[in-house]
C-alpha cells in the first residue's frame, strides 16, 4: 500500500511539474515535450486507479498520435516566441482580472460543495465490481450497449472532422504527374518495343 501511495504522489507531483513547464517553457517544442511527459504521468495515475485500459489508450492516442502531429506542426512552424509575447503585458491586467474572478468563483463553489443525497448511489451504479471483471471488458460492456448512441455519435463527429479538414486543406494541383500503378503494370513489352531483324549492310528503313 505504501508503494501505491508513494507512486501516486510521485506521478501527481511529476504531472504538475510537467504541466507547469508546458506553460513556462520559452521554446514551444520543449513545451510540447513537457506536455507528453505530463500525459505519461496521467497514464501512470490511471494505472494506479486500476484503469489500465484507459492508461494505455491515453498513451497510444495522445502520446503516440496526437502529440506527434502536434510536435510535427510546432517544429515546422518555428514559432517566434518574442512575437507571441508582445501583447503579453498589455493584456496582463485583463487576464489577471478574469482569472482572479474565476478563481474566486471556484473557491466559493468548492468551499460550499454539497452533493445531492442520491449522488453517490447514482455515481456508483454503472460500475461493475472490479473483482469479477477486467476493466477492458467492463468498458466494452457498457460502451457498446448502454452508450451505443453516444459512441456512434462520436464516430459521426470524427467523420465530420475528417471531411472538414479535407475540405479546408486539400487542393488539387494542376500539372502534377502521379504514378498510376495500374498503367505501369498493364504495360507490355509489345506496346513499346519492336524487335526487328536487320539485315547486315541495309540499316533500318
Amino acid at each position: 500500500m505504501i508503494a501505491a501511495t508513494l507512486a501516486f504522489y510521485l506521478f501527481s507531483a511529476l504531472a504538475i511539474v510537467g504541466a507547469l513547464n508546458v506553460i513556462f517553457q520559452r521554446n514551444p517544442v520543449h513545451s510540447v515535450l513537457w506536455l507528453i511527459f505530463t500525459f505519461f504521468n496521467a497514464a501512470g495515475l490511471f494505472v494506479l486507479l486500476g484503469a489500465e485500459f484507459v492508461a494505455m489508450i491515453l498513451v497510444i492516442v495522445y502520446v503516440g498520435a496526437v502529440a506527434v502531429l502536434f510536435l510535427f506542426v510546432v517544429m515546422m512552424l518555428d514559432i517566434n516566441i518574442t512575437m507571441v509575447r508582445e501583447g503579453f503585458l498589455k493584456y496582463l491586467p485583463v487576464g489577471l482580472l478574469v482569472g482572479g474572478i474565476l478563481l474566486a468563483e471556484l473557491i466559493t463553489v468548492f468551499a460550499g460543495w454539497v452533493m445531492s443525497d442520491s449522488a453517490d448511489v447514482l455515481r456508483a451504479a454503472p460500475a461493475p465490481d472490479p473483482s469479477d471483471i477486467g476493466n477492458t471488458e467492463a468498458l466494452g460492456l457498457i460502451l457498446y450497449t448502454d452508450y451505443i448512441y453516444v459512441f456512434q455519435a462520436a464516430g459521426i463527429i470524427l467523420l465530420v472532422a475528417m471531411i472538414g479538414s479535407i475540405v479546408l486543406t486539400h487542393r488539387t494541383r494542376a500539372g502534377v504527374r502521379k504514378q498510376v500503378i495500374g498503367e505501369q503494370n498493364a504495360r507490355r513489352p509489345s506496346d513499346t518495343l519492336e524487335v526487328v531483324k536487320v539485315e547486315s549492310g541495309k540499316g533500318l528503313q
Binding site: 494505455m56 489508450i57 498513451v59 497510444i60 502520446v63 503516440g64 498520435a65
Partner: peptide
Amino acid sequence: LYLFAISS
C-alpha cells in the same frame, strides 16, 4: 496495448 503503445 502496452506493446502497441511502446512501439508507437
